[in-house]
Amino acid sequence: MLSKEKLARISELSKRAKSTGLTKAEANEQQSLRNEYIKTFRQSFKQQLHAVTVVDENGNDVTPDALKESKKNKNNRAH
Rank of each mutant, 00 (worst) to 15 (best):
M1A: 12
M1I: 15
M1E: 06
M1D: 10
M1C: 12
L2W: 06
L2R: 03
L2G: 03
K4N: 15
E5W: 02
E5N: 00
K6W: 10
L7S: 08
R9I: 05
R9Y: 13
R9K: 14
I10M: 14
L13I: 05
L13R: 06
S14N: 11
K15T: 09
K15Y: 13
K15M: 10
R16D: 07
A17C: 02
K18G: 07
S19H: 06
T20H: 11
G21F: 05
L22A: 13
L22K: 02
L22M: 05
T23D: 08
T23N: 02
K24R: 11
A25Y: 04
A25S: 15
N28R: 06
N28C: 11
E29C: 00
Q30W: 13
Q30N: 03
Q30H: 14
Q31L: 14
Q31H: 03
S32Q: 13
R34C: 12
R34D: 04
N35C: 14
E36H: 09
Y37C: 00
Y37Q: 03
Y37F: 13
I38F: 12
K39L: 10
K39W: 08
T40W: 05
F41V: 09
F41A: 10
F41I: 10
R42M: 12
R42E: 13
R42H: 06
R42P: 05
R42A: 14
Q43R: 10
S44I: 09
S44Y: 15
F45Q: 13
F45R: 10
K46M: 08
K46N: 09
Q48P: 01
Q48A: 06
Q48S: 09
Q48M: 12
L49P: 01
A51G: 10
V52Y: 08
V52H: 00
V52M: 00
V52G: 03
T53I: 00
T53H: 12
T53F: 04
T53K: 14
V54W: 13
V54E: 02
V54P: 04
D56M: 01
D56W: 11
E57K: 00
G59S: 00
G59C: 07
N60Q: 09
N60M: 04
V62R: 00
P64I: 02
P64H: 06
P64L: 06
P64Y: 01
L67C: 05
L67V: 12
K68P: 07
E69N: 05
E69G: 08
S70F: 07
S70K: 09
K71C: 01
K71R: 14
N73P: 00
N73K: 15
K74A: 06
K74N: 06
K74T: 05
N75G: 07
N75F: 07
N76K: 14
N76E: 12
R77L: 07
R77E: 05
A78S: 11
H79V: 13
H79P: 03
H79N: 11
